[in-house]
């Protein structure tokens, strides 16, 4: 009664490649974080990729959706929990905090003044450039619902819509580059 001999390496067939999938020169990015530093990185990579001629799709989900709120827009008719979330979460990209060294606002203010001094693009400028370069923004409908955000309080952006996970997967499956930030 001998055990089955160990299979030799060459007998192991390689996993078949999924048929018909052709990767596009495209970046699919999940923006999960609502931290200032991480959104800066995401926007710099997105605009850089678009400048390189890549198609870019950014999927904003969970804490990331708060970064897309427009501080100037006011919406009513929210229930108690939605109001609480709306009040606790940052109202738009200019209200975001650093993930580290926030120090009650001092660190974030210091970074912003440094960026100004070094002429680094602000989030406002990066969103403008992204819009000019055709970067698509897709927002997770489920996160919006969870946080109690309404479409009416989201920024004006030329290429924005509200989607589910299947849209992300269909896009990322065809993308040469994928990131989760």
């Amino acid at each position: 009664m001998s055990a089955e001999p160990a299979r030799k390496l060459e007998e192991t067939a390689p996993a078949p490649k999924p048929a018909g999938v052709v990767l596009e020169n495209k970046l699919s990015m999940v923006v999960f974080s609502g931290d200032l530093d991480k959104l800066l990185a995401a926007m710099i990579i997105a605009t850089g990729a678009a400048a390189m001629g890549m198609k870019v799709v950014m999927f904003f989900t969970f804490w990331g959706t708060a970064a897309l709120r427009d501080a100037k827009k006011k919406v009513g008719g929210k229930d108690f929990m939605s109001k609480m979330f709306g009040w606790m979460l940052p109202k738009g990209r200019n209200a975001l905090k650093l993930s580290q060294m926030h120090m009650g606002g001092m660190g974030t203010a210091m970074l912003k003044s440094l960026m100004k001094k070094k002429n680094a693009p602000t989030l406002d400028q990066l969103f403008d450039i992204a819009a000019q370069l055709g970067v698509e923004i897709k927002v997770c409908e489920m996160s919006m619902d969870l946080m109690g955000f309404k479409h009416e309080e989201i920024i004006d952006y030329p290429n924005i819509d509200y989607v589910g996970v299947a849209t992300f997967l269909a896009n990322s499956g065809k993308s040469s580059n994928q990131l989760f930030i």
Binding site: M52, Q132, L133
Partner: peptide
């Protein structure tokens, strides 16, 4: 005077 990513962005434009 323009830092990353502006040089390649401007170049592409």
């Amino acid at each position: 005077g323009l830092p990353c990513p502006m040089p390649v962005v401007k170049m592409s434009q």
